[in-house]
Write a protein that binds this DNA or RNA. Structure first.
Lengths: 258, 258
DNA sequence: GGACAAGTCCGATAAAAACTCGGATTGCGT
DNA sequence: ACGCAATCCGAGTTTTTATCGGACTTGTCC
């Protein structure tokens, strides 16, 4: 008999790990803790029993990525994706209960890969500035390496109301910002930039600026070298922030300045 | 007999006004010219003959906005929108040939309203910095005033692959960035910030940062006062940029600084 | 290494949604 | 107030999504 996705009960929000609990330890420790939480979050890759099935699942995911990247999420029919994957439509329903679910599964698996990659790369780095620079350069580079995924993720998924419907994907995207805010707080403690500013506002400038560059690259393949341009804009912003601190300090020493 | 949207020929890209021609006059003049071009662009509001029909079209647009803002673009059925508008489904097809077209018409009409509003407000302002501040504060304020539209526009439409399919909407969104880049160039000429930086990069920081704030507000209604927060982040970035120029200048005067 | 149970695949078919048609009705100029 | 074009809308048709259940595979236990 068929094992349909829709037969499974909605996995009642694994209550064991605390998904929302705001990590509020010393920033140094909580950074590792946060990364660990995030890297483990999306673990249900495929609970299929047979190898054959895992291959099919992969085929479908790859096909979906290609099709979504080419035509967006709403236009392609389920049948198109099934055809691209080389399986009958009904088989696709054995794996994913709807197009929406399929469209959120793909980004999730890549996002998990990114976080785990960053976790490895950041291992020896302790400086907040360096950590941020690495984080964001790697984001840009990851988008360049996985251009089809990037197109799907940056243009269709993030930001989209649709995100609100997919608990798990929503968390993962929030995590992205959460890491950055944490690092900005760390930098405040270290005196790398002003501690008087709203860290969320600072995060908005960093994420917003970089995303804008990534999105422009996705749409127009300009600037040519995304990795370089991404690193450049982040460095520029970080320098601006460092300068902002310097000005604040000298203003405090010589109040009647200007 | 029915007059169906699908009967009309695809209006072959009015060749009269040059939509792509990059305006390259002195920045001062081209600003007015650009705004004029933009404000006139989306003029095919409704070529219906009867008043009754214009009312119906408005009803449908309003209903679509409410429904899209609530449930996104892909999930609602055409029938839902028709029901919300209080007309039979088939009538909706007399006005818009598909859900996609409907979903692009709504943002267009609002965007046109914004540009025209800005055009009036900026009339007396000549300073690049002030023009940008006004432009972006008004963007934030416009989003706050038209929260349903903003949800649709920022979360679903911009950026979306879907934009690429709708020539007209695509232009309007490009225009938004084009105005900003022009103003940044003007500011370079005026010595308000560094002329050595890529204006597109600078624009990315401004637009990206502000959009990030707007999107956060749409999703979480935080910060509470969007207008204030939007103005604040733009002012902060503009100050950062002014400081950047100062540092560059003093570095040139005393090269061995640091 | 064979048999049997669970797991996977897929053609046929039902259900839902998108879209069309053409006549009935209404608005508007004369 | 008449006539004709413009608009409206109920009743279909076509396209797309989703389900069902049996045929076929795979892994495993003896």
């Amino acid at each position: 008999m068929a094992t349909r996705i829709s037969d499974l009960k909605p996995t009642t929000e694994s209550a064991s790990d605390t998904p929302e609990a705001p990590v509020r330890l010393a920033h140094a420790d909580s950074f590792d803790a946060l990364l660990a939480t995030i890297a483990d979050r999306p673990k249900r890759v495929s609970n299929r029993k047979q190898d054959r099935s895992k291959r099919t699942a992969q085929q479908i995911m790859n096909a979906a990525l290609r099709v979504f990247a080419r035509d967006g999420i709403s236009r392609p029919k389920i049948a198109d994706i099934a055809a691209e994957a080389g399986v009958p439509t009904s088989t696709l329903y054995d794996y994913y209960k709807s197009k929406e679910e399929l469209a959120s599964e793909v980004p999730l698996s890549y996002l998990a890969a990114f976080f785990s990659k960053y976790r490895d790369a950041v291992a020896g780095v302790t400086d907040a500035r360096e950590r941020i620079l690495l984080y964001m350069s790697m984001s840009a580079d990851f988008a360049r390496e996985n251009a089809e995924w990037a197109r799907l993720f940056y243009l269709e998924i993030w930001p989209s109301v649709f995100v609100n419907d997919t608990e798990e994907l929503r968390h993962s995207i929030d995590d992205f910002a959460r890491v950055l805010v944490l690092l900005i707080r760390q930098g405040m403690d270290e005196g790398a930039w002003s501690a008087m500013r709203d860290p969320y506002e600072t995060a908005a400038i960093l994420i917003g600026g970089l995303n804008q560059v990534i999105i422009t690259w996705i749409l127009y393949r300009r600037p040519r070298n995304l990795t370089k341009a991404g690193t450049a804009i982040v460095e520029r912003i970080l320098n601006l922030l460092a300068e902002e601190l310097r000005v604040e300090q000298s203003a405090r020493n010589a109040p009647r300045r200007r």
